[in-house]
Design a protein around this nucleic acid. Structure first.
Lengths: 122, 122
DNA sequence: CATTTGTATTAGTAGTATTAGTACATTATT
DNA sequence: AATAATGTACTAATACTACTAATACAAATG
């Protein structure tokens, strides 16, 4: 299922997240379907369960999956819809970044603003 | 001139940048006026010349000052104008960040997008 | 020619993200 | 009731990156 070769240069939990997202979007994993257990994937990829857990937590925060303790993790009913919304939001935000760069702000400036605004929201 | 007490929690080069920007905006440093030498400030604040250099480099990138090797660094003729533009751009960008967060993207997502788009521009 | 200027290169340090090891709590199964 | 399987939380080790410093270089001025 999760046949994938881990590469360097990108965190493992992120590679795994990209892979699972891909499976959901392509329809290879149906909505409502149960995902493999954390330890299952960890064993298969020879990585730590916590790394998989981090991936699941992020996917759940995104709304692509939901997890029930002692039961399992499942593909969210509206996974595709949410993913599409996220993609659109990402594209729009990327354009905002381009504009800001063109107007003279630096990458550091933008990173700082993102951090500050994010912190304020908590 | 640069009487300021360095505090923790914020990089030195950034504190210095904020201070100099303040001086320029408040009109305490006129446009065209010569800034103290890198080593001058370094000595006065008991920090490394390279840290001051980093501040100057950033201010020059912003367009607030310009440096001439073996001569000195000077306040840019349009410093105030540029600073105002940067502030406006920052505010607009901050709003874009708020929107993206509200639409479900995470701080990590946004930081990644900023990095990717910045890298693409080079 | 010596001094003053900005700049580049290298290295050490500290803070932070990533990953792993381990333990916990809850639910299903037998 | 007991065992196993699940997601989750906590701690520690490691890797990575930003910050700062030490030093050296290059050019202009007097």
């Amino acid at each position: 299922m999760f046949s994938m070769k881990l590469q360097g240069g990108m965190p493992i939990h992120e590679q795994l997240r990209a892979r699972i997202t891909e499976l959901i979007i392509n329809g290879e994993m149906k909505e409502g379907e149960k995902l493999p257990a954390v330890r299952e994937i960890a064993k298969q990829l020879t990585i730590n369960p916590n790394t998989v857990q981090k991936t699941y937590a992020e996917l759940e925060r995104q709304g692509l999956i939901y997890s029930v303790p002692a039961k399992g993790s499942y593909v969210s009913p509206r996974a595709k819809y949410i993913n599409k919304l996220n993609q659109q939001t990402s594209e729009t935000f990327a354009e905002a970044v381009e504009s800001a760069l063109a107007l003279g702000l630096s990458e550091e400036d933008l990173l700082k603003i993102v951090s500050e605004v994010s912190q304020k929201q908590r």
